[in-house]
Amino acid sequence: MIKVENLTKRYAGITAIRDLSFHVEKGEIVGFLGPNGAGKSTTMRILSSYMPATSGRASIAGFDVFSQSMEARQHLGYMPENVPLYPDMRVTEYLNYRATLKEITGARQRERVGDVKELCALKEVENRIIGTLSKGYRQRVGLADALLHSPDLLILDEPTIGLDPNQIRQVRDLIRNLGRHHTILLSTHILPEVEMTCSRVVIINRGKIEAADTPENLVHAMRTAGGIRLEAKVGKDDGLAEIGKLAGVKEVSVEAEDDWSVFTLRTDSRSDPREELWRLATDRRWTVRELSRRRATLEDVFVELTLGDEV
């Protein structure tokens, strides 16, 4: 659905993205992640034909975004960062206006505008002036606009930024539902959301791709998988010495909590020393009140990939 080959974009002075290549297949929901200034919005703007790349090629549904941009735009629903809208128009008026620009007219326009208002829960504000809407509703108007021409592909730049937790959940559900019929590329900084909705993630940092895989694979491939936590009644130094000897343990730290010791272990991604820990504790007759493993999350992956070379 999206094919990006060796895309480079240079602004006056800085290179925002460098030799970027990735693709998105039909039916996928792909999360596009990266720290601030990584080049996510830049890539999306190129894909939406808003501006051309300095070099490289990109196509949407087989249409080159530069040379066949009209066809590409017909297949794409795009919601820019910060959802710019005309503040002086009314919601329905705006959607009708956008529909005509997208060549949806007459009875089909009435039907589509009605549908997207329904889908994005805009019915109760349909006659309000956009400038007076809350941020969340404006976001929904932007999303409704992107959906108007029932495009095969949706590109959403930070669709949930600035929304309250309820609305985030609503938008997330909406996106998941849309994912049944549309291909979606979305950028966001809310990583749990990506784990819940996206079938694949592309992580970029400083204009370069760091990883592109399913969230599960990325988490599994983490070099430093999640930690293990053990709370036991044992002297701090004793415990440290004994636990440090176990295979697969890379690092142990300890904190005192009343007369309990709380050990935090970092391990290799492949090994799980919980069984040996348990045996050790029973052998030494430590009283254990908690033994748990914290799974690595996408956030760990993100931090490792985008911060790794700085720390």
Partner: peptide
């Protein structure tokens, strides 16, 4: 200034 140029110019208009 408002950024609406981005919504406008990504619709299929020349």
């Amino acid at each position: 200034k408002m950024g609406t140029i981005e919504t406008l110019m990504t619709a299929p208009v020349r």
